[in-house]
Nucleic acid binder design. Structure first.
Length: 319
DNA sequence: AAAAGCCGCAACCGCCGGGGT
DNA sequence: GACCCCGGCGGTTGCGGCTTT
């Protein structure tokens, strides 16, 4: 025999958002009893509320409790959540016990709306915390709205065999996007698969990478592409927050998003950055490009004629 | 300026397990 | 052991606000 239905199924019980009066009645009732609730089922009647006891409990534990910490999650909290989730799975209440003032509901919501998507963008399975197959990566494949001609160019550039070379190509592509056709005129010629890939073009000199704001974004992409969650995911948690290189603009934040932090230790020289980035090939340049297209203010897509003209100028790619 | 689409979060729902009888 | 009550948990929904078209 199952349980008797909860009072929530009573026809007269109010549902939906709580009013200030209801909040006040609930808080005053609990305070009158020294913070002790007793029976949640009996509370609504005692407090003069036309609510289900369960609803009262939820309202109190998730919103009205005085020790609840409101506001954005810090980077430390985010790292902790990820580490705990890797170990515990969706045990939100257990995870919540490790974060002062955070409720299980809040953590669950934050996971589902922020962290989960972030991991997917990084190519990490949010359930297993392992690297996803390339086809399953959220940002993999063609970027929506990206002109096909550009993707073709990107695919051709995929013949470049290191992250650094591809990233330099990407940088020129992005300069072309933001700076007009002239900036990209020699792009494809410089990076055509027909070119001698073994010889690093002059612009690939590692020391040319200096951490101005745009190059910081570039280096973020480099390190992002170099990220290997399957093996060292947890050990990399300390720098996880800095991996959020495709941070979406925060609509609620009036201030502009801070410049993405460097993925490498601040003490790293540009040479070390480049060396680390150049350690292995990436799986697909179009992936890298697709990620770049998500970097706010890094690209502004023009209409398709712009791309066709740009690529036609190169005389290297069929349109 | 208006409509459509998207996103985040508060709240709901159903199930489970512990404790009491 | 069976039944019942209750609190707690995780998954899901739907509303309101914001952004984009």
């Amino acid at each position: 025999m199952g349980r008797s239905p909860c009072c929530c199924h009573d026809a007269g019980v109010k549902k939906g958002p709580w009013t200030e009066e209801e909040d006040r009645a609930l808080v005053e009732h609990i305070q009158r009893h020294g913070g002790h609730v007793g029976s949640w089922r009996n509370l609504p009647k005692a407090a003069g509320l036309n609510r289900c006891g369960k609803s009262c409990r939820l309202r109190w534990t998730n919103y009205l409790r005085p020790d609840i910490k409101r506001g954005n999650f810090t980077a430390d909290e985010e790292r902790l959540i990820i580490a705990l989730h890797a170990e515990l799975g969706n045990k939100w209440s257990t995870i919540a016990t490790h974060l002062d003032g955070r409720t299980d509901n809040e953590i669950k919501n934050y996971w589902n709306t922020h962290i989960r998507k972030k991991l997917l963008r990084m190519g990490v399975d949010p359930v297993t915390h392992q690297r996803l197959p390339p086809d399953d990566v959220l940002i993999g494949g063609a970027a929506p709205g990206l002109p096909e001609a550009l993707l073709s160019a990107a695919a051709s550039l995929g013949g470049l065999n290191t992250v650094l070379m591809q990233a330099q190509a990407l940088q020129l592509l992005l300069q072309a996007v933001s700076g007009g056709a002239a900036a990209g005129a020699g792009l494809v010629a410089s990076f055509s698969p027909a070119a001698d890939n073994a010889a690093m073009p002059p612009m690939l000199n590692a020391s040319s990478i200096v951490p101005n704001s745009q190059d910081q974004q570039m280096m973020n992409l480099l390190a992002h592409a170099n990220y290997q969650p399957a093996d060292d995911y947890l050990s990399n948690l300390a720098s996880f927050a800095e991996h959020d290189v495709v941070r979406q603009p925060n609509a609620s934040a009036p201030a502009p998003a801070p410049a993405p932090a460097l993925l490498v230790p601040a003490s790293s020289s540009p040479q070390e950055v480049a060396a680390a980035a150049d350690r292995r090939p990436v799986q697909g340049f179009s992936d890298l490009l697709s990620e770049a297209m998500e970097v706010p203010s890094m690209c502004s897509l023009e209409d398709e004629h712009f791309w066709k003209d740009l690529l036609a100028e190169s005389n290297h790619l069929p349109l």
